[in-house]
């Protein structure tokens, strides 16, 4: 019997902007699908590429990193470094043909509750279309 596919995804939100946006979306009673498990980090640049890759190879169907808009980082420039790291991971996934569409980077400020809800919703919908990550069932990783 075919199991119904329910995406299990991971997200990293910066404490100053995107996590606040998640709060705002919640208090504004906006609806979005609850498939992404979010982790709060002090800054988007706290996300070591290993977090993303480990999540991916342990079966996460998608990984999103969200932080302050460029220029608005609480630590002045953390998100610029985060962007370069994301570019690196994305390039490696793209070049190895490892479904880079399962990775996403978004800038969501503290006041953008609606954007948070939309980005989450869209990502989950996209992953539903792509289907489950093959690393979920793969033995020889």
């Amino acid at each position: 019997m075919e199991e119904k596919f329910e995406p299990q995804m991971v997200g990293f939100l910066c404490r100053w902007c995107s996590y606040q946006a998640a709060d705002l979306a919640g208090t504004s009673r906006m609806k979005y699908q609850p498939n992404i498990v979010f982790t709060r980090v002090m800054c988007s640049s706290r996300v070591d590429p290993i977090f993303v890759i480990k999540a991916f190879f342990h079966g996460a169907d998608g990984v999103i990193i969200a932080g302050c808009h460029p220029g608005d980082c609480h630590y002045q420039e953390g998100n610029y470094y985060a962007r370069r790291r994301f570019a690196l991971i994305n390039k490696i996934f793209e070049k190895l043909n490892l479904e880079p569409e399962r990775l996403r980077l978004a800038w969501i400020s503290a006041s953008e509750g609606p954007k948070f809800a939309k980005v989450t919703q869209d990502f989950v919908n996209d992953i539903r279309k792509i289907g489950p990550n093959r690393t979920r069932k793969e033995i020889f990783l």
Partner: peptide
């Protein structure tokens, strides 16, 4: 936890993870 959704698991695990992480560390 891993084996709850998989039929098996390579031991030791993380062979591919090791190579990809090494790529992120040194490819630049």
């Amino acid at each position: 936890t891993e084996l709850e959704r998989k039929d098996g698991m390579r031991i030791p695990p993380d062979t591919i993870l090791y190579q990809i992480v090494r790529l992120t560390h040194i490819s630049t």
